[in-house]
Design a protein around this nucleic acid. Structure first.
Lengths: 191, 191, 191, 191
DNA sequence: CATGAATGAGTCTTCATTCAT
DNA sequence: AATGAATGAAGACTCATTCAT
C-alpha cells in the first residue's frame, strides 16, 4: 500500500478508480477485479498494490463519487440567493451531473446498495452531505415534514431526484421537462 | 423442469422460493444456491429441477413477491370509497406489509436492483402494478405531475414509500409517525 | 462435505489422500492442491468437495498415515513375548514400514513439522501412540531415563528411529546393519 | 549483488539475515520477503540487492546459524580435557545456545527441513561439523555404534540433542534435569 | 422426481522478482 | 546502492450446473 505515493503512483490509483467506475456501471459490483485491471491496462496485481481488497477499491470509488457529486452540486453557492433559487440551482446541477455522467451515477447507486461500502465511509459521506441537505430541510420547515429528522428529508429528496434522473435518462428528449416536474414534485413534497 | 407439476412438486417449488427469500434477505443476491438448498432442506441438485438457473429462481422470487405485495395492497378495494381514503388505505397496507415482512421487502429490493430479473418479468410486474398506480395518477391530475407518464408518477410514489418504510424500520417506535409524514409528503408531492 | 458418503465417494476420498501423500513426498507441503488433483485425475474442485481446506486434507493425510504406521507396528503383538522381543519386533516392523513406504514416511514427516496439522489431530495421534510407547518406557525403567515423562522417552525413541531409517534409505545395501545398530543404540539409550 | 561489499553493505546484509531469522521463527519459511524487509526497515527491493533470491537468503541464514552454533559449541575447547568433560561441555553449550536463542534454533530447524537450503550449503555445513562430531564418534568407539559412519553417529546425537532441547523449551522449570537426562541418554547410546 | 457427488471455470488475493528513478 | 511501484504467475477456494444412481 503506497503511503503517500509519488505522482505516477497517484495517477495510477486514479486510473484504477476510473476503470472501476466504468466496469461497475457496465457489469455491476459483481464485476471481477481482473476485468477492471484489464480495462485500465494494468496488471491484476497492481490493483491490490493500491487497494487492500476489492471492497477497499469499491469503497474508495464510492467515496470519490460522493465527494465529486457533492462538489458539483454545492460549489460556489451564493449565500445571498433566495432559498428557492438555491434549491433550483442545486437541483439543476444535481440532475446535470447525473445526465452527463450516467456511468458515474449508475456506479454510485450500485455500490451504494452493495455491502462493499464500509460503515465509516457511509457515515462520512452522510456527514458531508449535511450542508446541502440542510437547505432542503429549511425549505420543509413549514410543510408536512417539519419536525422530521434531516435523514428522512434527505432520503426523500434523494429518492425523488433519482427517480427524476431515471426518467431523464430514459427519455433524453424530454429531459428538461422531467427535471422541472421532478423539482416541482420535490418542492411540493417539502411543503 | 415440471411444466404444470403435481401438487407435491408445486409445494416444493414454493418452499425453495421461500428459502431463497430468507437467504437473499440475509446474504444478498450473491448467496449461493447451495445455501438456499440447505435452508430449505433439499439437495443442491433439486433446486435445478424446479428452476433452470439461479437467475430463473430469483426471477421467480421477484415475481412472487411483487404479486404478493400487489395483492396485499389492492385486495378488496371498495370502489365506492373517496379517492383519498383509497390512497390512505393503500398506503397503510403497503407500509404494513413492509413492516411485517422485512425479509420479503429486503429481498424484493435486492433482487430488483440485481441483474437477475428478466426484462419480461420486469415488464409484467410493471404492467400489473398499473391498476394501483392509476389511483395515484388520478390524484396527481391537478398537481405539478399532471401530464407526466404514469411510469414517472409510479416511480416517485414507490420511491417515497420505500424511504418511508426505511425510516419505519429504523425507528419502529416512531413508525406510525413516519408512515403518516411519508403519506402527507407523497400526497403533497402529487399536488 | 459428504457426511457419510457412498462407496464411490469414499473411494475418491481415499484416492485424493493417496495422491496427496505422493505429491507431498515429492514436492513438500507447499505442493498445490491443483497438482494433487491432477495426480489423482480429478477436478480441482473435487478436492474441496471432500476436504474443507488444504489444511483439512493434509490433516487427514497425517491422521491416516499415523494410524497406518501404528497399526503396522502394533498389530497382533503377542503379550506373552519377553519385553526385548517385543521391542525388537516393533523396531523391525517400524523400520520395515519406513523402508517399504518411503513416500509415506516422508509425507508423514513433512506434514508433521508443518502448521497443517490441527492440534486436535496431533493430540489424538499422540494419545493413540501411548500403547506402543509404554513398552519403551517400561524398558527404560531401570536406566537413565527412569522418571522422565513418557513424552520425552517417546520423542527420543522416535528421533533415533527416524535417524536410523534415514541411513537405511541412504544406503539400502547396508540397511540391515543400520537397523540393528540403530536398535542397539536405542536400547542402550533407554538403559 | 555486492561481491565483497563495503562495510555498510555488509551491515545491511547482516540485518536482513537477522530479520529473516525472526520472521521465519515466527511465521515459518513461507513468510514473505516483504515481511522480512518490513521487519528490517528496508525496502522490498533491497533484499534482492543482497541476495539473488529468497532461496539464496534462507540458504545464507542457514549457513550463518549453523556456523554460529558450531562456534558457540566448539570455541576454545581445551584439548587437554578428558573426553567426557569435553562432551559434557559441548552438550551444555549446545543446549544453552538453544535455550537462549529459541528463535534461532527454530529458524535453523525450519529452514533445515525446507527446500531452501542448497545441497552445497548442506554439504559444507556437514563438513564443518565433522570436528565436533569426531568427539562423539571417538566416544562411541567402544559401543554399539563402533564402525558406524560418522554421519550416522552425528545424526543420532543431533536427534537426541534436539529432542532434549524441545523438552527444555516445553518445561523451562525442569530444563536442567532434561539437559542432564538427555546427556546421559546420549552417552549411553554411544555406549 | 430427488439426490448429492463431481466438475472446472472463475474469484480474490499473494508474492518473488524486476526496474525506472 | 537503495527505493518501492509494478508485474503476472500462481494459489486456495467458490459455485452454478450436470448427471449417474
Amino acid at each position: 500500500m503506497p503511503e503517500a505515493g509519488n505522482a505516477r503512483s497517484l495517477v495510477m490509483r486514479s486510473r484504477i478508480i476510473e476503470g472501476a467506475v466504468e466496469v461497475v456501471a457496465d457489469d455491476g459490483v459483481a464485476a471481477s477485479t481482473a476485468v477492471i485491471a484489464k480495462r485500465v491496462g494494468v496488471a491484476q496485481g497492481s490493483v491490490f498494490h493500491h487497494f487492500e481488497t476489492k471492497a477497499g477499491l469499491l469503497d474508495a470509488v464510492f467515496a470519490v463519487l460522493k465527494k465529486e457529486l457533492r462538489a458539483a452540486v454545492i460549489a460556489d453557492l451564493d449565500d445571498a440567493l433566495p432559498l428557492d433559487d438555491k434549491l433550483w440551482l442545486i437541483w439543476r446541477r444535481w440532475t446535470d451531473w447525473g445526465t452527463r455522467n450516467p456511468a458515474r451515477r449508475r456506479a454510485l447507486l450500485l455500490i451504494g446498495v452493495s455491502e462493499y461500502v464500509s460503515s465509516q465511509t457511509r457515515q462520512e459521506s452522510e456527514l458531508e452531505s449535511v450542508v446541502g441537505v440542510e437547505l432542503f430541510q429549511e425549505a420543509s420547515r413549514t410543510g408536512v415534514l417539519r419536525q422530521q429528522p434531516i435523514r428522512f428529508v434527505g432520503a426523500l429528496v434523494e429518492a425523488v431526484a433519482n427517480s427524476t434522473m431515471d426518467m431523464m435518462a430514459l427519455e433524453p428528449a424530454r429531459a428538461d421537462e422531467y427535471r422541472l416536474a421532478g423539482y416541482r414534485a420535490m418542492r411540493n413534497m417539502l411543503g
